[in-house]
């Protein structure tokens, strides 16, 4: 994570802003209270409210309940610590770093449903990487939505990077091909590929993603090294379907030239192998907690890598499970 050290202090500031917003967190509920059955029920409700989902909530609450009965947890603060430990174990740190190509440009493909915040999130990633002195090229593969290319262009002008674009209504795979060629020719460090928002229920559009992916892979061996799914923090249980379906459409050989995630958890048959490699959790600066990512990690092993916490390109943070628990609970 040395890559992101320089921005840590600014992230802290962003986090505080996030915390201020979360007024009715669990922290208030837990601090200074003795743990009992009634409080456990309140914790359960809070988890459900955070969109953690009923299965995962039940599992977490059962764990708390068991430890409470065996005397391991007795205060509200203990529960907070317990949940932090659980989340930290769920998201080992190596899971959260960006996958980097061993040589040549690293290709990041950005996907998601309509309105998840893909283009804004790309501006944030771009700003993050530019802050590290990396060279970045953008590919405007959302040729479908009116104004999408222009939106990315405006960001690129503001951030001082180039963007490869095609015609409105043109073939996004062709744009991806051109962008990959340009990335190689210009020796950029990163190529970030924007794609059109699509609902995971629309087969033809999902197949288009598969095509973009294979075009990238053909041009640059091992690409895309990172496939990010932008997930709106306000999303409910349907986000699980999004993660599964996008992963399926983007499935493929594990990228060559990229070390497999070092956590050793690469579960056989897991959806994440080669599919979506990480989540960018957007719009976390509202009151939504994005708890569904816990359930997604459990079911598909897809980690959260970044969180978006505001409107400007600087409002991005590297995901941190402990802060996530803090934000969710206090």
């Amino acid at each position: 994570m040395a890559l992101f050290k320089s921005i840590v202090s600014r992230l802290r500031k962003g986090l505080e802003k996030t915390r201020e917003v979360l007024t009715s967190g669990l922290g208030d509920l837990l601090r200074g209270r003795r743990l009992d059955e009634a409080l456990i029920q309140e914790i359960r409700t809070k988890l459900l409210q955070a969109d953690v989902g009923i299965q995962t909530t039940n599992r977490l609450v059962e764990g708390i309940s068991a430890d409470y009965k065996s005397g391991k947890l007795s205060k509200g603060e203990d529960v907070l610590e317990y949940l932090k430990r659980e989340m930290a174990a769920l998201w080992p740190s190596q899971d959260r770093s960006l996958r980097i190509a061993t040589s040549g440009p690293t290709v990041i493909m950005v996907t998601g449903v309509n309105g998840a915040g893909k283009t804004t999130s790309i501006a944030k990633l771009c700003s993050l990487l530019r802050g590290q002195g990396k060279t970045v090229l953008l590919a405007a593969c959302d040729t479908f939505r009116a104004g999408a290319v222009r939106q990315l262009e405006i960001w690129s002008e503001r951030l001082g990077v180039d963007v490869v674009k095609g015609q409105q209504g043109g073939d996004p795979a062709a744009v991806a091909f051109d962008a990959a060629s340009a990335a190689l020719a210009r020796h950029v460090d990163f190529l970030i590929v924007d794609t059109a928002g699509r609902l995971h229920t629309q087969d033809p559009l999902m197949r288009q993603l598969t095509k973009i992916r294979s075009v990238l892979a053909k041009k640059i061996p091992g690409a895309p090294h990172e496939v990010l799914l932008v997930l709106d923090a306000t999303a409910g249980q349907n986000a699980m379907r999004q993660a599964v379906e996008f992963s399926k459409a983007l499935g493929g050989e594990s990228p060559a030239g990229v070390p497999a995630p070092a956590n050793g958890k690469g579960t056989p048959g897991s959806e994440s192998a080669g599919g979506v490699t990480g989540i960018f959790l957007s719009k976390l600066d509202g009151t939504a907690k994005g708890g569904i990512v816990v359930a997604i990690k459990e079911a598909t092993d897809i980690p959260v890598k970044f969180v978006g916490v505001g409107e400007t390109p600087d409002d991005v943070e590297v995901f941190d499970p402990e802060s996530f628990v803090e934000a969710m609970f206090g």
Binding site: A50, G115, L199, T234, G236, A239, T287, A288, K289, I292
Partner: peptide, 26 residues
């Protein structure tokens, strides 16, 4: 596709604007 938070945002918009119709998308 919004989750539990729908109630918070809708409440806030309604308090400020007295919303008189809802359109559900996607």
């Amino acid at each position: 596709m919004t989750g539990q938070d729908a109630i918070n945002s809708a409440k806030a918009f309604h308090e400020r604007l007295e919303v008189d119709g809802i359109i559900l998308t996607k």
